[in-house]
Amino acid sequence: MTALSLKDVSVTFGDIPVLDRINLHVEQGEFVSILGPSGAGKSTIFRLLTGALPLQTGTISCASPENSFAFMPQRDALMPWRRIIDNLTLGLEVQGIPRKDARAHVAPLLRDFGLADFTTHYPAQLSGGMRQRAALLRTIVQGRSIQLLDEPFGALDALTRTQMQTWFEDRWRAARWTSLLVTHDVREAVALSDRIYVLSRRPARVIAEITVPIPRPRLGRPPSAQAHDIEAHLLEILLHQTGEKP
């Protein structure tokens, strides 16, 4: 079943075209990445989906039209004045769920996310990786049908990023959240995705759609030759793009 589809979605800011007839779709339980150069307008797609930006032209359709998306921003956006547990329940609180029920809803997931012993800590007391896990759990517990992940590992150091990606793949294989990931990291896109859309430089068009048939788990082991080929292919497309004169 198609969970989300965008048809001919275009956006202009003033005179500047940012998105040019974007077509993409995400199936139920599928992990899809949007890969593109920095500043291509990847995040603009998310802003359209979360309603931060009004849709100008084209159509967006979702399987469940009300409250489809849970959004995980690039930096963790944890509230520094709230303890971890209260950050995790923020989305439920906004939905009007009483605090006690919200906490009970989050409790069974804490262990898998490695946060069980840190619920009363403030965000500043946690490492970057833990904060990112908290931000992901805050996204998941909202119970929305599609997870929007905006470069969720981009702000981490290389080692933590690799650990987090491996951990994330594990969690994803267990839960199969329908996910749309925005990234400019080719390796990350290949490691996590079922399908990858490659965007051009601004104005962003979809210039390639690539299926990644590599069996999971893909991380925590030497990369397969197939993964290497796909990465090389993607890189070539991207380099060709950014190599052009604006």
Binding site: T50, A52, A70, W81, V94, L148
Partner: peptide
């Protein structure tokens, strides 16, 4: 980013004020 996040959660202007702007 915290305000964007809350808006994505469907928060009202009032909820954003209480949970984010005021603190």
């Amino acid at each position: 980013e915290i305000e964007d996040l809350m808006r994505s959660m469907g928060a009202t202007r009032d909820q954003i004020f209480r949970a984010a702007r005021f603190p």
